[in-house]
């Protein structure tokens, strides 16, 4: 297991390094002078030239890249072109909000889609199956921002207890300083009012973000359950007279959960992408809101940082899923170790 994980981690680290190099090169070869962006249109050509020198923009691109990667290894993402604040500290400030949202989304996805998928497989071709089929289709085809807007609309008329913007009622006066996650910090600080309020704010964005994944994972769980159900070892278990409930949840689901988990990992990149739009609609103070803002301002260093951090999110999510798969299905870690 440890050997397999090290191999996976190393190959994912390579992916991250490649990502860093690629984004850096793209950001440097596109038209648009970072020094000009930093100083604004009113600066003189001399000032721009001076700043270019200071920022090292006159060095060959591989020298710049080397400096950037060395900084990156020390956790330095450079400075914002507009505010001159270190990009890393800005991102760290916005990160917990996004992490909380994404975590809530994934928990929601797993806890809704896998049971429904199992149910659909169990009652195959019945009305339950048909309803989950329609629900999953809707979840997949509705654009995240359209769902977000519809939820906001419904909330403003019918579910007024769910706020449509922000992360916490400002009047509660609470600083999440320990982990940055409101739900955890409020428990640590012993503030049930904050906990409930945070949950209310989290609910709608998490639903809007989770819908697409729920639909997909539900269908995949269903087909995996049906496929596993016809295997010999399930027939054998039935022949032994093991209760159907135990067969479904202990034997079948264990094998069948490999496919949906793999898909969750692969789809994680698009989940982060959707978070950009959903955070934007709900004014969620996370990394995506920060990203959209810096992108609109053409703050190149910040943009590179945001894309990189999203890549890190993806890599960590996939490593976690690899660990889970290794626990669930021993064949996976043997195959993985051979392949990697």
């Amino acid at each position: 297991m440890a050997f397999y994980l090290t191999k996976r981690a190393l190959s994912l680290l390579m992916v991250l390094l490649g990502l860093a190099v690629m984004i850096f090169v793209i950001a440097r070869i596109v038209p648009g002078d970072p020094a000009r962006i930093a100083l604004g249109p009113l600066a003189t050509a001399n000032q721009v030239a001076e700043l270019r020198q200071e920022m090292g923009l006159n060095d060959p691109i591989y020298v710049q890249l080397w400096h950037y990667l060395v900084g990156l290894a020390q956790g330095d993402l450079g400075k914002s072109l507009l505010t001159s604040r270190p990009v890393m500290s800005d991102i760290l400030q916005a990160l917990p909000a996004t992490f909380e949202l994404v975590l809530a989304t994934v928990i929601l996805q797993i806890s809704i889609s896998i049971p429904l998928g199992v149910l659909a497989a169990y009652y195959r071709d019945s009305w339950i199956d048909n309803i989950t089929r329609i629900l999953s289709l809707l979840g997949v085809v509705i654009p995240g921002f359209v769902l977000a807007i519809i939820l906001q609309l419904l909330a403003s008329y019918y579910f007024t207890s769910f706020p449509v913007t922000g992360r916490l009622d400002p009047s509660l006066d609470f600083q999440a300083n320990t982990t940055g996650l409101l739900l955890i910090d409020s428990v640590i600080a012993g503030r049930p009012d904050v906990f409930i309020d945070a949950l209310r704010y989290l609910f709608l964005p998490a639903i809007a973000l989770a819908a697409g994944g729920i639909g997909q994972v539900m269908r995949i769980t269903r087909s995996a359950m049906i496929e596993v159900g016809s295997r010999d070892f399930i027939e054998a278990a039935r022949a032994y007279g093991i209760p159907e409930r135990v067969i479904t949840f202990r034997y079948m689901l264990r094998v069948a959960s490999v496919a949906p988990l793999t898909i969750l990992g692969l789809e994680f990149a698009s989940l982060i992408g959707n978070a950009f739009v959903v955070e934007f609609v709900f004014s969620w103070p996370g990394i995506a809101s920060y990203g959209v803002r810096t992108i609109l301002q053409k703050d190149l260093n910040a943009v590179i940082g945001v894309v990189l951090v999203s890549g890190v999110f993806f890599v960590i999510a996939n490593l976690t899923i690899d660990v889970l798969l290794g626990i669930i299905d021993p064949r996976h870690r043997i195959r993985g170790a051979q392949k990697a």
């Binding site: 698009s270 992408g273 950009f276 990203g291 945001v306 999203s310 999110f313």
Partner: peptide, 11 residues
């Protein structure tokens, strides 16, 4: 594949 497509396209 590790790049969030929307983030990259935005950038």
């Amino acid at each position: 594949l590790a790049v969030p497509p929307l983030a990259m396209a935005l950038a």
